[in-house]
Design a protein around this nucleic acid. Structure first.
Lengths: 354, 354
DNA sequence: CTGTTAGCGCATTCAC
DNA sequence: GTGAATGCGCTAACAG
């Protein structure tokens, strides 16, 4: 009993197994690495010994000589130490790809205060990294470019590196255009666009798509109907207040495009309070950020699926491609969004002013 | 130019730095490990050389000799390859603790089909692990106990190891009792309890807390008012349908306890449709699973905060304690839930039957 | 306070 | 097919 426990704690190494199986170390090595074929008899003998001794090749010793870790790093925004729900969909996508290609995922969230201490200044134990929430000027990217580390960015990379770094991103112009066009086709003309925060580039892209959709039809929107989210109140509250306020000033609004699910939550409440039926009196579309499931709205929310998971998966795929190619291949992937029709949009009411 | 790029790609090692700074390898080692004090002059000289050569100590080489990785593994349920939003709060908690103690987090999600291939059978590059979503009989735990690996479990551990393994868990009995007592104190007697799925142990604990609260007051609930969630429809839909159905059969229901935020979403909709005002006609409490922010309900949802983040943080803390102590210390942490009063509950209407 | 030496556990030349 | 050396980059004992 005692000794059993003892054995478990002291990890056997390759020599132990070689000795036990009566073969040389390199034979054991080849059994586990599969690099050279070993006779089935010997193979079995080695595997048995290994099993009996509870042996597994040491991850680090192997990595040290092969110079690869088969670990991918996920680098989050260091200003916050928290993933949000949209990040979660990226992660799940990354995870799916890693899992299918045999990579592990390391969350890199050590504050720079830590990393800059001399005793913490180590190389990262990863083959490459995925950068989340890139900034227009991003020192994480800067630092990695300088030391020649491999990476892929999710989102729009720092302008400086836009042509030099691989990234995956949504086509935000197209996303907004898709939503807008759908509503225009239904006959809506006065569409309230509750946009992202103004300082994020995504809001500019969305505005562009919105405008583009109108102008392609020889129309032009009332720019007063584009309102930017502000951070002061919660998303739902902002959606609610905006609709309440704008509907009063522009009573001929017949449709709303909402930046996120949560905003749509507020839009729904405002509609309810104003006695507006969705979709009969008001059509609603949201850019889906996987926060509230569209099916949990009533009526189910028509949305532009941003596909966070796909983005994450593509990012992982792109990074692993680089690792295998062992050079920095610069490839940019744009994911088109898809409009998923549910029940929150309808044609404009007959007799309404157009 | 050329050579600059070249230098970046070929990682310098300790000997290079030692040579460049004119000192021995061990001096360089000590500068970076901080194990022995080095004269400031030499220290600076070494740091400069390191900086110039873009040197950082190799993570794996260090780990190989120190026998510690300063990496914690997060082991998810291998049947699914996806984190849900409740998992996310655990992760954020774990991350916060890791970040403050200088540990990295490795997501372990490789399918066992992969891990069982001989060429993939390596030791895990972690010092210890946190197990998510434990099952009543869990082979992940089984396997780790056998090989003597350190771990901490979030949730209720397999019965077999309940006394032998460290874990952190909510006090689900207390959580349900708190919610129920609050409503009973407000005068409610007919409380609809929309419970978790029956096969999960949590639903039994919640039922126990519910019953306990009544019996402490010499009351006893109508057990028909305890209904278990089923997986057939979405959470919100289930909440909606249940309230619609039960209110018809038991029109004297004046309060609802909902298993999750999403269910509460459906409860709110049902109330709206039945013309019931919250909280005047119907009080609502939910166990908060961080899915929809309570403030995004209208009126804001009173809830029992399950504190997923705290759970995650405590789990990490517990695991790191073990790592430092270098032995399996068995300690179990129970987190009490807190009732957060918002605006969805009120006293029972006067004149109502009690 | 600094330098020398010997491994950590493995993969990878080579010979056989 | 198999086995004996060499070294990956580092830390930890030494000795000076």
């Amino acid at each position: 009993m005692e000794s059993e426990v003892e054995e478990n704690n002291v990890m056997a190494n390759m020599s132990d197994v070689a000795k036990d199986a009566g073969v040389s170390k390199s034979t054991v090595s080849n059994v586990f690495s599969g690099k050279r074929s070993i006779s089935e008899a010997v193979r079995q003998r080695v595997l048995e010994s290994a099993n009996r001794l509870n042996y597994r090749p040491n991850y680090f010793a192997r990595s040290m000589v092969t110079k690869e870790t088969r670990i991918i790093g996920l680098v989050m925004d260091s200003r916050k130490v928290k993933f949000n729900q949209y990040n979660l969909s990226f992660i799940n996508g990354v995870l799916r790809e890693c899992s299918s290609q045999g990579y592990r995922l390391l969350i890199d969230t050590l504050p720079s205060s830590f990393r800059n201490k001399v005793t913490q200044m180590t190389s990262e134990p990863v083959d490459g990294e995925i950068i989340l929430d890139p900034l227009t000027v991003d020192e994480r990217v800067e630092e990695r470019v300088k030391s020649g580390r491999l990476m892929t960015i999710i989102g729009k990379p720092p302008r400086k590196y836009e042509a030099a770094l691989p990234y995956v991103n949504n086509d935000n112009v197209q996303a907004a255009e898709t939503a807008t066009s759908y509503l225009l086709e239904l006959g809506h003309r006065n569409i309230l666009m509750i946009n992202a925060v103004k300082k994020h580039t995504v809001s500019q892209d969305r505005k562009a798509g919105f405008m583009l959709s109108y102008s392609k039809r020889g129309l032009s929107p009332d720019e007063e109907l584009i309102v930017y989210r502000d951070d002061a109140v919660s998303s739902a509250e902002f959606g609610y207040r905006t609709v309440m306020k704008w509907m009063e000033k522009f009573p001929d609004i017949t449709a709303v495009i909402a930046d996120t699910d949560q905003i749509a939550l507020g839009v729904y409440r405002a509609a309810m309070e104003l006695g507006l039926s969705i979709p009969d009196d008001l059509s609603v579309i949201a850019f889906n950020n996987d926060t509230v499931y569209p099916g949990e709205f009533h009526p189910p929310l028509t949305s532009v699926e941003l596909n966070g998971e796909i983005l994450g998966q593509e990012a992982a795929k792109l990074l692993i491609e680089q690792l295998v190619a062992k050079n920095k291949l610069v490839k940019q992937v744009t994911i088109q969004s898809r409009l998923v029709l549910r029940a929150s949009c309808g044609p404009i009411k007959q007799g309404f002013p157009v």
